[in-house]
């Protein structure tokens, strides 16, 4: 070959050509696969919401089961007022990511979706929650029953908590503790569900944290307190109004 491979011109042209080829092909791949990926993310979310009301779903059937159980949704602003949504409110609520609301927005701008589900004739209200664990974000879904107080189920997930320690929040051992707990005390005041050191006295408003996963437990505690207080205020206005019945 007559081309001088060590010349600057050749090197620069080669580099540019490589960038164009690589860049173009990646755009094509990413655009082709995008719809499938977005569907996966959505189904994963639906799966987690269903898990909070104790409905088991796989990634494949989460979509149909979600339609079957989730009947309505409300989007709240930071003052616990329902925001008016013109389009399909469930679809709109699904686009809200509790974790990025917490991470990327000032407290006053955050939106709080609430999913209203129906299972075996009774209604459940699923509250998405998001916060900070030890390494990265933690989030979850907590469902309360028709009394707007007793927890029917909870599911949690995390980005990168330590396996065997903080990551245990996403296991049934931690999640099932929430069932039957109450987010309001006997006087109807909001007390959240505290995540406390294991071995303490049993309470209706506390669950055992993870031994060795203290930071994650504290993160879950903070997240529940902060997010559920918003929903709690809304629940109060809800139980006063007759519109619910």
């Amino acid at each position: 070959m007559a081309i001088n491979k060590d010349s600057n011109a050749y090197t620069i042209i080669f580099a540019i050509a490589m960038c164009v080829v690589v860049g173009t092909s990646l755009v094509i791949v990413s655009q082709t696969l995008k719809p499938v990926q977005e569907k996966n993310v959505m189904n994963d979310k639906k799966q987690n919401i269903l898990a909070a009301i104790q409905v088991e779903a796989t990634l494949q059937d989460a979509g149909t089961k979600f339609e079957q159980y989730v009947k309505d949704a409300v989007i709240l602003d930071a003052n616990s007022q329902a925001v008016e949504v013109k389009t399909d409110v469930i679809a709109e609520a699904l686009t809200i990511n509790a974790l990025s609301e917490f991470k990327d927005k000032p407290a006053t701008d955050r939106r709080y979706p609430l999913f209203i589900c129906e299972k075996d004739g009774s209604r459940f209200f699923v509250m998405p929650v998001g916060g900070q664990g030890l390494w990265a974000g933690v989030w979850g879904y907590v469902a309360v029953g028709e009394d707007l107080n007793t927890i029917a189920g909870a599911s949690f997930d995390h980005k990168s908590e330590t396996p065997g320690l903080g990551a245990e929040i996403a296991t049934p051992f931690f999640e099932t503790q929430f069932t039957g707990k109450k987010i309001h005390d006997d006087n109807g005041e909001f007390v959240s569900i505290r995540v406390v050191k294991p071995g303490g006295p049993k309470s209706d408003h506390a669950v055992d944290g993870i031994s060795g996963g203290t930071f994650t437990s504290v993160g879950v505690d903070e997240m529940l307190m902060r997010c559920m207080s918003i929903y709690s205020k809304y629940f109060k206005t809800m139980s006063k109004s007759t519109a619910l019945n």
Partner: peptide
């Protein structure tokens, strides 16, 4: 380039 393609494919088919 290859790794990004693999990552995208995994995200799409074995989420």
């Amino acid at each position: 380039w290859l790794v990004i393609i693999v990552d995208q494919v995994l995200k799409a088919y074995v989420y």
